[in-house]
């Protein structure tokens, strides 16, 4: 089986995988990084979004061998070194941007990619950008509010 080496969340990691092993499976099963979730088989739901060389991709729709030599960032690497939540994660907690938590890793990774490209998105831009991330719990409002807040913009009050 091919051996791949990736820099995952800042640490070099190697694994033997089959050619058919997708990146999400390599992360979950070979590297124990189960924060990247699998919610569908058609590349629609976005629960598996990670960053490969700084770009958001769906880890279920990329072969692990294609990530050989790449920098991969997953949800497990998003918090600060001291374990505290980063600004996006904190905003999701503050604005009730999650309920069951299953889509959340993908949402956080997509939000991070959005804010990297567009530090002050409008609400419409946020909603448009999240086209590939499905949440069944929140109705998205808490998520949108969280991303607005993480970008330093005022969000609608989450709780009344």
């Amino acid at each position: 089986m091919p051996k791949i080496t990736m820099n995952v969340n800042g640490a070099s990691v190697s694994a033997e995988v089959e050619n058919r092993t997708v990146l999400s499976a390599a992360l979950r099963e070979e590297m124990g990084l189960t924060g990247t979730h699998i919610g569908c088989d058609t590349s629609q739901c976005g629960a598996c979004v990670v960053h490969v060389n700084g770009k958001a991709v769906k880890a279920c729709t990329m072969f692990a061998v294609e990530a050989d030599g790449a920098n991969v960032d997953t949800i497990e690497g998003q918090a600060h070194a001291d374990g505290s939540l980063n600004i996006i994660q904190q905003a999701f907690q503050d604005h009730h941007g999650l309920q069951c938590g299953f889509c959340t890793p993908g949402m956080i990774m997509s939000a991070a990619a959005l804010l990297k490209d567009n530090p002050k998105p409008t609400e419409a831009e946020i909603r448009d950008y999240l086209e590939g991330n499905i949440c069944r719990c929140t109705g998205y409002q808490g998520i949108v509010n969280a991303i607005m807040a993480a970008s330093g913009q005022s969000a609608a009050i989450a709780a009344e």
């Binding site: 924060g35 907690q93 938590g101 299953f102 956080i108 709780a159």
Partner: peptide
């Protein structure tokens, strides 16, 4: 009180433990 959810921290850091995470 609109207390923030304590369970969020594990979900936000990829440390939730769903059934398929257990092997």
């Amino acid at each position: 009180h609109a207390t923030k959810r304590r369970e969020d921290v594990r979900f936000l850091t990829g440390r939730g433990r769903y059934t398929d995470d257990y092997t």
